[in-house]
C-alpha cells in the first residue's frame, strides 16, 4: 500500500485526493439531505450502476490503452450480449439455473467471437489509419444495432427471472431488494479484481501494460504483439457482453441501452484517463454515485429529471477542465 502511494506521480496523488473529497462530499450531501435510509439506498443504487458501467468501460479502456482504438461498438456488444442471452434463456428447455448460465456463456462467447473477427478482419488492416478505426467502429456499431433490431424487433424485452437463489429478497436500508442486485455488484467486483490480477500478476498482463506504452518495443523483444491485441479486444468485447446479460434480469433489454451505456462508459473512461485501468475502476464508481445522487436530488427538490441526465456530462466537463487528460491519465 505504502509503495503504491510513493510510486504515484504527484498528479495522480492529487487525483486520489480529489476523488476521496468528492465522494465524501456526495455521501455527506445525501446523508444530510435524504436522511440515513434513503441515502443508503441511493448509494447502493449508485454502486450498482457503477459496476454495470465498469463492465462496459473496462473493455473500452483496455482496448483504447493497448490498441489506440476507441471502440464505439462496445455499446453494441452489450446489446448483442443482452439480446442473445435473452434468446438463449427463452429457447432452452432446462432448469432456470442451467438456462441462466447458458445465457451468460452463450452471449459472452458469441460476442467474443464477433470481437475476434472484427479485430482480425477489419481493425487490423487499419492500424496505419487510426481515425478510420474509430470511424469504422462507429459504423459497425450502427450495423450491429440494425441487425439486433432486424432480428429481435423494436419492442423492449421483459426482464427475465434469474435463478431462485438470486431471486430471493433481502432488506437493506429498510428497502426490500432482490439478491440479484448483490450478484451484479459481486460480478462487477470479481471482474474488477480479476482483470487487476490479470494485468499485474501474469505475464500476459505485463505484456499488455508494456504494450500500452510502446507496442513496437514489445514486438522487438520477440513477442507477437498483434496476438495480444486480438486477445485484449476479445476480452473487452466479452466484458461488455457480460454486462449486457447481467442487465437483462435487472431491467430487461431495449435497443437504446447500448448507446446509453456507451455514453456512460465513454464518460467514465475520459474521467478516469484513457487507458488507465485504475482510473476506469475509480471513475465507474464515481460516475455511478454521481448519477444516483443527482437523480435523488432532482426527485426530491427540483422536479427536473434533466439534472440527473446532465450531471455526469457536467462532471466530465469539470474534470477535463481541471485535468485535461483525465484523473489517472498520462499527462503529455
Amino acid at each position: 500500500m505504502q509503495t503504491y502511494w510513493t510510486n504515484l506521480t504527484p498528479q495522480h496523488r492529487r487525483s486520489w485526493l480529489l476523488v476521496v473529497v468528492y465522494v465524501a462530499l456526495l455521501l455527506a450531501i445525501s446523508w444530510l439531505d435524504f436522511g440515513y435510509n434513503t441515502a443508503g439506498q441511493t448509494v447502493f443504487r449508485g454502486i450498482l450502476l457503477g459496476m454495470l458501467v465498469f463492465l462496459v468501460a473496462s473493455g473500452l479502456s483496455l482496448i483504447f490503452g493497448l490498441l489506440d482504438v476507441l471502440n464505439f461498438a462496445q455499446g453494441a456488444f452489450l446489446l448483442i450480449g443482452a439480446y442473445v442471452g435473452y434468446d438463449i434463456y427463452h429457447s432452452l428447455d432446462a432448469s432456470v439455473e442451467v438456462r441462466f448460465l447458458a445465457a451468460i456463456g452463450g452471449g459472452v462467447l458469441l460476442v467474443a467471437a464477433i470481437g475476434a473477427v472484427m479485430e482480425a478482419g477489419l481493425i487490423r488492416p487499419l492500424y496505419e489509419r487510426p481515425i478510420f478505426q474509430i470511424v469504422l467502429t462507429f459504423g459497425l456499431a450502427a450495423i450491429f444495432l440494425d441487425f439486433v433490431e432486424r432480428i429481435y424487433g423494436r419492442n423492449p424485452k421483459q426482464p427475465l427471472s434469474p435463478p431462485p437463489l438470486l431471486n430471493e429478497k433481502f432488506t437493506l436500508f429498510q428497502q426490500s431488494l432482490s439478491v440479484y442486485r448483490l450478484f451484479i455488484i459481486g460480478l462487477g467486483l470479481a471482474m474488477m479484481i480479476g482483470v487487476y490480477i490479470l494485468l499485474n500478476r501474469t505475464r500476459i498482463g505485463i505484456i499488455i501494460r508494456a504494450g500500452v506504452q510502446d507496442p513496437e518495443m514489445v514486438q522487438a523483444l520477440g513477442i507477437n504483439v498483434r496476438r495480444v491485441f486480438t486477445l485484449v479486444f476479445i476480452l473487452g468485447s466479452a466484458l461488455a457482453a457480460l454486462g449486457g446479460i447481467a442487465l437483462v434480469p435487472y431491467q430487461g433489454a431495449t435497443l437504446e441501452m447500448g448507446n446509453q451505456f456507451l455514453i456512460l462508459a465513454i464518460v467514465v473512461v475520459v474521467i478516469g484517463g484513457m487507458g488507465s485501468y485504475e482510473g476506469t475502476a475509480v471513475a465507474s464508481i464515481v460516475v455511478g454515485l454521481t448519477r444516483a445522487v443527482a437523480e435523488q436530488l432532482s426527485l426530491e427538490h427540483f422536479d427536473a429529471p434533466v439534472l440527473a441526465e446532465t450531471s455526469i456530462l457536467l462532471l466530465m466537463i469539470a474534470v477535463l477542465l481541471v485535468q485535461p487528460s483525465g484523473l489517472f491519465g498520462r499527462g503529455e
Binding site: V267, V270, P305, V306, E309, T310, L313, M316, I317, L320
Partner: peptide, 24 residues
C-alpha cells in the same frame, strides 16, 4: 488533445440534446 477533444465535444452536444429533449 486528440481523443479528449473528441469526447468533450461529444459530451457537450449530447448535453444540449438531452436539455432540448427534456420536459423541464
Amino acid at each position: 488533445r486528440g481523443i479528449y477533444f473528441t469526447m468533450f465535444t461529444l459530451a457537450l452536444a449530447e448535453m444540449f440534446f438531452v436539455l432540448a429533449k427534456s420536459g423541464t
